[in-house]
Design a protein around this nucleic acid. Structure first.
Lengths: 204, 204
DNA sequence: CAACTTCGAATTGTTAACAATCAGACAATA
DNA sequence: TATTGTCTGATTGTTAACAATTCGAAGTTG
C-alpha cells in the first residue's frame, strides 16, 4: 500500500490492531484480565479510548467482557465449533474470491505478492506471531476487497479460530499453501484459487 | 423466563436492544444519521453510554460508522450477499439445534411456546415490527442456548438480513413455519426441526 | 456565474474527575 | 471449623466539560 493512501487509523483502531496482534502472539494469556489503566498509559491516551477499543474487541470475539469486571482473552472454541467456523470461513472467502477476482488491479497483485514475501520470510525465521499476523492480513485482503460488511463478519469468525492457533507443524507448508493461492489469484484462475484456499483453511 | 433469573441489562445493552428494534421497525430511515445527543436525552444518560451502544451496534452491522461523522442505519445487502448470509445462518442454527436439543428443559419448551403465541398474535394483527422482533427472539433462543460465542456471530449475520426485511407476503405462513419448528423441538425431533428451520430461512 | 475561501454552528472525539461495583482479607459468630 | 458480615483497595461505569473535526452557508474572486 502506498504511503499516500495509507489510511490514518483512529486511536481506537490502533489500539484494537495492537492488542489483537498481541493476543494472537500469545503475549496475553487467557483468564488473565486485561486492565484499562495500564493500556491507557501505554498508548498515552485516556481510559475512554481504551474502553472503546476493548469493547470492540469483545464484539469481535478476541476478548470476553463481564460487566463491572472488565475483559479477558477469549478461550479457544470447542472442536465442533472450530469446524463450524472453518466451514463458514470457507464459504465467505469463496464468495469474496468470486466477487473480487475480476476487479483486482495490478497493484493488488503487488500487495499480495509483498504479503507473500513477508510470509515466506516469517516462516523461514519461524516467527510464529508474525506468521499469524501475515496469514490474517492475506486472507483479510481479498475479503476486504469484496465487501467491508462481510469483512466484519469474517473477522469475528476468523479471530475465534486463531485463538486456537497454538503451533503449526510445518511452517513452510503454510507458506506453500499461500503461495498457491496468490499465484492462482494473479493468474485470475478463480477455480484453482478457491481450491487452494479451501485446502488452506483446515480443520484442526 | 422467571423474574428471579431475569438478567439486569446494562445501560448499554438496554440502548442497544431499543435502537436495534427501532431500526427493524423502520422507525429510522437509512442514510439519515443517528445522533448521540438526542438519544442521550431520551434515555436520561450521558453521551458516553450512548456512544458505547452505537459502537456496539456498528460492530453488529445494524449501523455503519464513519469517523467524525457518526453513525447511520445500514443499507440492505446485495442479493448475492443476502443469499450468503442465509446459507451461513442455516449452518449456524443447524449446529446450534444439534448442540442444544438434548439439553433443553421443560421451561425452555414453555418459553418457546410463549414466544410462538406472541408471534401468532402479532401475525394476526399484522404488526410487522412485532413480528420481526419475535421472529428474531425465537431463532436467538436456540442459538443462545447452544453457545454465547456463536450467538454474537449469528446476530451480526442475522441483523444484516433483517435490514432487508421489507414485507412478508403472508403473515400466517410465517407463523406456521415457526409453529412447525417449535413443535418439532418440543418433541425433540432434531431432523424435523432442522428441516423446518431450513425452510423458514429463505432466500429473498 | 461558477469556483474558491472563510467562517461558524453542529457534531463527534477526548479527557479527567467522580460514583458504583467487585474481590479479597480479616474479624465475629454459631 | 465453617459461615457470615464488614471493611478496603482496585477496577469499571458514568458524567460533564473541553478539543477537534465536519459541513454547509455565506461571502469573495476570477
Amino acid at each position: 500500500m502506498s504511503i499516500a493512501e495509507k489510511p490514518i487509523l483512529s486511536m481506537r483502531q490502533q489500539i484494537c490492531e495492537t492488542v489483537r496482534a498481541e493476543v494472537f502472539a500469545g503475549q496475553m494469556t487467557n483468564d488473565q484480565p486485561v486492565r484499562e489503566q495500564p493500556l491507557a498509559e501505554r498508548f498515552g491516551v485516556s481510559r475512554g479510548s481504551v474502553r472503546d477499543a476493548l469493547l470492540q474487541l469483545s464484539q469481535e470475539g478476541v476478548l470476553v467482557y463481564s460487566p463491572n469486571r472488565g475483559v479477558r482473552v477469549s478461550s479457544p472454541p470447542s472442536d465442533t465449533e472450530f469446524r463450524l467456523y472453518a466451514k463458514l470461513r470457507k464459504e465467505i472467502e469463496g464468495h469474496c474470491l468470486d466477487v473480487c477476482m475480476d476487479q483486482l488491479t495490478e497493484e493488488d497483485d503487488r500487495n499480495l505478492t509483498n504479503l507473500l514475501a513477508t510470509l515466506e520470510d516469517s516462516c523461514r525465521r519461524g516467527d510464529l506471531s508474525k506468521i499469524t499476523e501475515t496469514d490474517l492480513a492475506m486472507h483479510r485482503y481479498w475479503v476486504s476487497r469484496a465487501s467491508t460488511e462481510l469483512e466484519s463478519v469474517w473477522l469475528s469468525i476468523t479471530v475465534r479460530m486463531l485463538i486456537a492457533y497454538t503451533l503449526l507443524e510445518d511452517y513452510m507448508q503454510c507458506y506453500q499453501e499461500h503461495a498457491a493461492i496468490v499465484e492462482a489469484i494473479v493468474r485470475r484462475d478463480l477455480k484453482t484459487a478457491k481450491r487452494a484456499m479451501n485446502e488452506n483453511i483446515r480443520y484442526k
